[in-house]
Amino acid sequence: MKRVYVNEEWCLGCHLCEYYCAFAQTNQVSMARALKGRKIHPHIRVEESGAVHFAVSCRHCEIPLCVKGCITGALSIDDGIIKVDESRCIGCFTCILSCPYGAISPSPDGHAARKCELCQATAAGVPLCAANCPNQAIVYEDRG
């Protein structure tokens, strides 16, 4: 299955992935119109300290602790992709606590958990973080 992979060696720490992620969530055509004046809530985040930086996003684990821990069944594995059903999420954030990568975050209104779903349901259809990474530090590929 195709997943988003991160090559730390080539990450520039430019944070473009975060903005493309936020853009993908809006399903709009123009990034300027979509994001102008708005605070972004990306599902991929660049972790950095000094000269070290790399992007972190959901790895869509084969044995996901978040899904195991979900008490309402809001998190599920759909064809390998771990998805959140916001209507079932009660915002207990057990998943956020159990994800070893810190890849799940609360939604801006605090009522549900949100995470990367590989852009499958967006207008773009492919993860924009990988498609727009200037140095191929984020790739979307099938590694078996």
Partner: peptide
């Protein structure tokens, strides 16, 4: 300025 979303990529790069 109509387009700038203050993503700061210019500053970082």
């Amino acid at each position: 300025l109509d387009r700038c979303i203050v993503c700061r990529v210019c500053e970082r790069q």
